[in-house]
Computed example of a mutant assay.
Amino acid sequence: MADPRWSVGINFDSKCNARCAHCCVSSSPDATANLDDDLVDKILEELLQEPNVREIGLTGGEPLIRRARTMSIIGKITASGRIASCVTNGFWGVTPRAADRVLRDFEHAGLRELTLSYDDFHSPYIGSERIRNILNASHDRKIKVVLNMCVSRSRDSRALLAELGESVHGIQVTQFPVVPAGEARSLPDHDFHRRPITEGMLHCPGNQVIYHNDGNIYPCCSPPIFDTAMTLGRADGRTFRQAVESFERNALLGIVQREGFGWFIDAIRRVAPEAPAACVTEVVSACELCSIIFRDEASVASIRPQVDAYWAAVRAG
């Protein structure tokens, strides 16, 4: 494999105890998409045999709905010498004691980093005192805790930060704009923080192999990719090595890495000037731009001759 240090994500279940309006993976209490336990065990066993896999992250849905299962998986990851990370909404921080107990379990399992997803979208379902309990308890634990807050024009989470008060001192807080993926596609268009496309938005910010609860393997952890057909195959039909080989052989992904999204926009404009990718001028991020391009399968198919010519020139050169 070309990249000696892969980070892999397992989004094993879509079930969540919250129903957030912005949820980019459409998780909810009645969501049913999942990777069954036997398949997850098989994926995990395979990943732990790959020397090039350095980190495995767990997400959902809400992984701690199945707390014992999640802790068991984390323990297997860390026992193999890999880094384990986890994303949670923090519903379990009911009291200071409960918050510390779960953090202690994470610590004993060897978890390296815990991301709390909490913002104005989560707050109707998870009280801020629970997050405060977790943040306060984390100061006595070795786990790095990160607070991720998704924001829109109407929901900036500033009041929540004030409620959390001194508990956020020393905590990495990341605010990022909501993207139109999953449930967030139903948000008012004016609520998205779109801005003119810049040079930086024309380049993919990174890759991570994701085993998603819809049964597909994706080449990226950014939720807009889940709305496209850009997959590396089915989770129950391909090994990790085969998925990575598909990544490395994929002509479209190769051009993304070598040239960026501008190449596709220019190519599509020449053959389909009315296509969404040909007309877009403002986006939330590079990830939204990527999804605009690759959701339009007809336009991508129309530039196949240019894609083939590009790789013929690369091989000839």
Rank of each mutant, 00 (worst) to 15 (best):
A286T: 06
A109Q: 05
C150M: 09
V178F: 00
R101E: 15
P51Q: 03
I268P: 10
C86H: 06
I131H: 04
A272T: 09
G215T: 12
G61Q: 05
D100A: 15
F192K: 04
S27W: 00
H22L: 04
A267K: 14
S27I: 02
I126V: 15
D37Q: 12
H108P: 00
L160M: 08
D214V: 07
M201T: 03
D191E: 15
E282N: 05
D156E: 06
A31D: 05
D105R: 01
G260L: 07
H108E: 11
Q306D: 10
L44Q: 11
S246P: 14
E274P: 02
A33V: 00
R130T: 02
L147A: 00
K42D: 15
R66P: 08
I43V: 10
N133E: 05
E107C: 04
A18Y: 13
W6T: 06
G215W: 08
V40W: 01
I143N: 01
N34K: 15
G200V: 07
P188C: 04
I217W: 06
A277I: 02
C16F: 09
C279K: 13
L114I: 04
R304L: 07
D100R: 14
L111V: 08
T59Y: 01
I134M: 11
E107W: 06
A109T: 02
E199Y: 13
C24V: 11
V280P: 08
D266H: 12
V209C: 14
V168R: 09
R69F: 14
L103N: 02
R195H: 11
D296Y: 08
N148L: 08
E55R: 14
N89H: 13
V145P: 01
A272Q: 14
N52P: 10
G9D: 09
E259M: 14
C279W: 03
G215N: 01
F192H: 02
A21S: 12
F261G: 10
E183I: 03
R315K: 10
G9W: 03
M201P: 13
P273G: 12
Q172W: 01
I10Y: 01
T239V: 09
Q175S: 04
I10T: 06
K142S: 14
L202R: 10
H190D: 15
L164I: 08
R69L: 07
S157E: 03
E183V: 00
A184L: 03
I217G: 03
A267V: 01
Q208V: 14
A184T: 07
L114Y: 03
T88I: 10
I143L: 04
S152T: 06
I293K: 01
V307M: 03
R249L: 08
R295A: 11
R315I: 02
F176Q: 09
A312M: 07
